[in-house]
Amino acid sequence: MTARSIKQLIPSRQVSDGAGVKIQRSLGLTQQLRLDPFLMLDCFGSDQASDYLAGFPAHPHRGFETVTYMLHGHMLHEDHMGNKGHLKSGGVQWMTAGRGIIHSEMPQQESGLMQGFQLWLNLPAAEKMKDAAYVDIAPEDIPVLQLDAGHQVKVIAGQFRSEQHQLDGAIRGLSTDPQYYDLHLVAGQSLHIELPEDYQALVYPYEQAVTILHGDTSSKVPMHQAAVLTAGSTLQVQADQDSKLLVLAGKPIGEPVAQYGPFVMNTSEEIEQAIRDYQTGTLTGDKPLQSIQI
């Protein structure tokens, strides 16, 4: 059993996306700040309507998956096939762009707090041109585990494992086997998590800092910084105050990445083809979106 430690800290930086939505971006700030298979991690959160009301009008994607996790608020997804999905507090939308999708994500509130995350998850070359798909996961369909020490774990994807507990998430069976947990930690208590040793992994505290314990040493992860972890089969995390954080892990794809905005392929030639397909209206092909079965 090898404990993971911190390899790199990536502070988030405020950027704007969509029609001017203010977000905190850590992973994906530059093309060098990726963690195969993860391409980007955005945290959005504001109670100022002017920071989010413009939303994300219709835009394309190809070659990867987007995972939107809404902590607070209400967004509406609409796509080129006429599908609609309401993403509300505590819910998740898992969308596979595949060969192409054109969609919008627009706020359905005019005031109040809107907070959540969007993760971009890469697809291997063999899957980049498959049919697009998406699923809306209601809050009540996300498994939650209450631990003896008072900690809480929401398992969005993968399989959570600790010394005494195991719980399957809402999404499983993908080729990159993503592990996506939302942990709520109690002050002064630590938590041991088991992770596949050869998977890339990171933690992202979004309420208060946390500490990674590694043998006799410890390293603090400030709030809104992504801590890329070393290889290992276990992670021990502790909170000095009640804290909330994401834990992400996934099987590396190990292929070249070529990206131009919302298109993520393996070569520059494939990117040029994606741009041509979008310009000529053939990005999405002629097949309808398929629903993923949970």
Rank of each mutant, 00 (worst) to 15 (best):
L202V: 07
H72D: 06
E194C: 12
A132I: 12
L174F: 11
L33M: 11
V247H: 06
I193M: 05
G91L: 10
Y134A: 07
P107M: 04
D216Q: 15
V135G: 00
L245V: 06
T66W: 05
E255H: 06
P205F: 13
L123K: 04
S268H: 13
E78W: 12
H184I: 15
H103S: 04
P262M: 10
L119Q: 04
S5F: 14
I102H: 03
I171M: 07
D42H: 04
R13K: 15
Q115M: 09
K154S: 09
G281P: 00
P37I: 08
T284Q: 03
E207G: 00
I6G: 04
R62Y: 05
D42M: 08
D177H: 15
K154G: 03
Q8E: 15
I6Y: 02
L174A: 12
Q273D: 09
E110Y: 08
H59C: 10
I253P: 03
E140F: 06
P196C: 00
Q152F: 11
Q93W: 11
P124V: 07
V203T: 08
K84G: 11
L123Q: 07
P196L: 09
Q108F: 05
D216C: 09
S5T: 15
A226G: 10
D42C: 04
E110G: 12
A126W: 04
E197H: 14
A126C: 11
Y206H: 09
A170R: 08
L87P: 00
L248C: 14
V155E: 03
E269V: 13
Q164C: 06
Y180S: 01
E272F: 05
L147D: 02
S233W: 10
